[in-house]
Every structure is written in C-alpha cells, then in structure tokens.
Design a protein around this nucleic acid. Structure first.
Lengths: 125, 125
DNA sequence: TTGAAACTGAACCATATGGTTCAGTATAGA
DNA sequence: TCTATACTGAACCATATGGTTCAGTTTCAA
C-alpha cells in the first residue's frame, strides 16, 4: 500500500546524480552552449556529451534547438520546484515528528517497556 | 577544466531517484521501522529492501541499528541541506542571468513600448 | 530445546548507465 | 565544388542497479 507513486521525480533526481550533468547545468545557467562547447569543456566526446544532454532533456532540465549544424542547449522548463518541495515536505514531516509530544512519549516508552510498541504504530498505514 | 567536482552530491541524488527509496524516506520521516516493516509495506523481499536501505545509508539519509534480531532504520544525518542549496544556487545564477538581460532590454527600450522582456527568455545568445 | 522470525550474503538475472569508436549525414564557408 | 565542422546513430564495453532465490546465522519465545 504505497501512498505516493510519483515516478516523475525519478528522472530529474537521476539527472542530478552525475557530476558532469550538474556541471552542464551550472554551465547552461550562465550561458547557452552547443554540444561541442560542452564536450570540450568537460573533456568528453561529442557522443558522450550528447547522451548527457539527452538525459537532461528527458528530465526537462534542458531544451535544445538545432539551427544549421549546431544544436544549442539551454536551461529547460523544469525548475526543480516540485523536487525542492518534496525535500521540504519530507523534512517538515520529520521535524514535526520530533517536535511533537509524541517524541517524549516514545522516548519514555522506549526506556522500559516492550520495543513492539513503536513498531505497531507504523502498521496501519 | 571542470570547476566543480562535488561527487558527494551523487549518492544523495541517486538515492532520491527511486520511487521506493523516496517512499522509505517518507515512511521513516513518520516513524522508525524495521527492514521487515519496510519490505512488507512496499511488497518486496527482505533482501531487496535491505539493498535499498543500504543505498540510503551510504548516502547518509538513513542510519540503522541492530538490536537483537531486528535492524531498526531511522532518518539519518544527511538533511539534504547542501542539495537544496545547490538547486537554489543553480536557479539563482540562472535568474541573475535573465535579470541582467532584462536590465539590458529595459535600458535599450527605456522609452516604454515594452513587450514583456521575460517572454523572450532563452531566445538570445 | 526447538522452531519460527529476522536478517544477511552470495549468486544470479535483466536492464540501465556512462562512456567509447566508427561510420555516416548535413551544413557552412572558402 | 570541395572540405572541414557539427552532429547523429549504431555498436560495443564495463560496471551499476533493482530486483530475485536460496542457503545460511542469530535471536526470540514457547
């Protein structure tokens, strides 16, 4: 019974999980660039860079447009708003948990009584 | 050549790039859980869940402690602060770039008749 | 003391990832 | 027209990922 099946987060996070791709994003945030520009900058073959750009494009983080021979890459429509929101919400839930009275109760219970008490709380989700 | 080699971002982002693992984090944000709890909740074998927890642990997002037979998983020391900061900085650079463009456009077209400079976003350079 | 529960590790599998080389095609420019 | 540039796609490679099964080991509890 999984409550969230937000697979659309997978591609952006996976795109960010690579040093080269984050570098490409930092580069493109400053100025648009061609595949050749980026390949030179990151010391990689054109084909290799094309793949990275493809991953970023699939994630919506980059858009490209080919004019003549050169394909220009620029920052795409995905601004990582939802991803930031996910992280924020995740931490909010976490903080709320430890700020609540529940924490004190759980802490006291863990001191002497059975450890099954905590586990039962997570059962009925 | 490459200015930022921050490979320590790889593991956390990669850890987030999976629906099951994000679900585990959401779960653990609410309550600690054993491997069995998580495996049941996400309809997966113990071994499979153990691997996911291992990935999360490697990324610092989860810590585990084994007491008796049961390994209890809880939210780890990595609060994704730096990751949030990276995204914020990335967007700040991007925004700064277009804000300065806007300033140039505004400078050139100082005698009103201004057709929404921001709509031309990405068409230049 | 004995059996079940909870985990662990090895091995396996299919597919994805991050690169490469090589052989093209299309276009810009002399 | 000719050539170099810029990209593209197929094929290949090594490794990683996301799962599984199976065969243990430890620990809890009756």
């Amino acid at each position: 019974m999984v409550q969230f099946q937000q697979t659309h987060f997978n591609a952006p996070f996976a795109a960010l999980a690579d040093t080269t791709r984050r570098g490409v994003l930092e580069q493109l945030a400053r100025a648009d660039a061609s595949i050749t520009d980026l390949a030179n900058h990151f010391d990689m073959t054109l084909t290799g860079m094309k793949k990275h750009v493809g991953v970023l494009e699939l994630a919506g983080l980059v858009t490209t447009e080919k004019v003549g021979r050169v394909r220009t890459c620029r920052i795409g429509p995905c601004r990582l708003d939802e991803e930031m929101e996910w992280i924020s919400r995740y931490r909010a839930v976490w903080d709320a948990r430890f700020d609540s009275l529940d924490r004190v109760v759980a802490e006291l219970k863990r001191k002497d009584t059975l450890p099954a008490a905590r586990r039962n709380r997570g059962r009925h989700e």
